[in-house]
Design a protein around this nucleic acid. Structure first.
Length: 294
DNA sequence: CTTACATCCTGATTGC
DNA sequence: TGCAATCAGGATGTAA
């Protein structure tokens, strides 16, 4: 029925695969569709200067952003938007529609990927073009990059404590569902996992974020880490759009408890799951397990 | 500082 | 059967 957006687990899956399959490869050529992505088109000349002849030194994730660090001391910053994919394909394979960027890798990368003595390509495909790709200066200054500087804490990092969460929510009157999706508060949660986290924690999505007491904060903290870790280990959720760089779907769809399950029984209490609109987005919850606080 | 809302985009789905 | 209207969503920019 509906699609889904790459959130933390999906981006982590892509980063992990790229780490395994293209770190060490050299970029030999760059091609772009020259179409607009999230407001601006890819700076092809800047990308060529940064990437051609450079090796990919690391593949990392920050929030929903993906970073490829190059030996040229530049970093390729990607955001997959709603429908973006980074796919690895042998050069002979026809380009999918809505391919906006192709990085041609060396033959060593092709051999590692098992496509024989053929060039391997890393392709950025994004039908709705809400994604982003740009070149930024070296890793040491990444925290100055505007997109990254605004991001809240990483929920799966060891330093993400109940106190970190409490500080992120303190004083906020907005509903907790919208706040969980606010990347400046916590990085990485989107519409799917925000609903899933609140179901797991037993918290009503309309609860004012700043009014959660110690008990519910602790439950929320545990739920954020548990839900995200499970989704990462399932390699993300696939409705239609998301695939890892090899084109394989994630396995987390069957593990979802509320998202897109309006009218179906809650796994804990059999009450029918409901959907409401919150912060302009569909939200799913169990009216019994997630009692309204007021 | 906060919160609310329009905007960007395409394709699947719904409505007539 | 066909075509137009609607909807989905993340991040950003603007306004209050």
């Amino acid at each position: 029925l509906s699609e889904h957006v790459p959130e933390l687990p999906e981006v982590e899956t892509v980063a992990a695969d790229l780490r395994r399959r293209v770190v060490g490869a050299t970029i030999e050529d760059v091609w772009s569709s020259r179409q607009r992505l999230r407001g601006c088109r890819i700076d092809v000349m800047g990308l060529r200067r940064a990437a051609v002849g450079a090796a990919i030194e690391s593949a990392r994730r920050r929030g929903k952003y993906l970073l490829l660090e190059l030996s040229s001391s530049r970093v390729l910053l990607f955001h997959l938007g709603m429908t973006g994919n980074l796919l690895l394909a042998p050069a002979r394979l026809a380009q999918a529609p809505h391919t906006h960027l192709v990085l041609t890798l060396d033959r060593l990368a092709g051999r590692r990927a098992g496509v024989g003595d053929e060039a391997l390509e890393l392709r950025f495909v994004d039908p709705r073009r809400f994604g982003l790709c740009r070149v930024v200066a070296r890793a040491a200054q990444l925290e100055r990059v505007r997109e990254l500087a605004q991001l809240g804490p990483e929920p799966l990092d060891a330093g993400f404590s109940v106190a970190t969460l409490a500080a992120a929510l303190r004083g906020l009157s907005r509903d907790i569902k919208s706040v969980l999706m606010d990347q400046r508060r916590i990085a990485g949660l989107g519409n799917i996992y925000a609903s899933e986290v609140l179901w797991t924690a037993g918290i009503h999505p309309r609860t004012p974020a700043g009014r959660l007491g110690p008990v519910r904060l602790a439950r929320l903290h545990g739920a954020i880490r548990h839900v995200l870790a499970e989704a990462v280990s399932n390699r993300g959720t696939t409705f239609r759009d998301f695939a890892d760089p090899a084109g394989q779907p994630g396995e987390h769809l069957r593990a979802l408890h509320v998202y897109q399950r309006a009218g179906q029984p809650c796994a804990r209490c059999q009450t029918l799951i409901r959907s409401v609109f919150l912060g302009q987005r569909s939200t799913f919850f169990c009216p019994r397990c997630q009692r309204s606080s007021r």
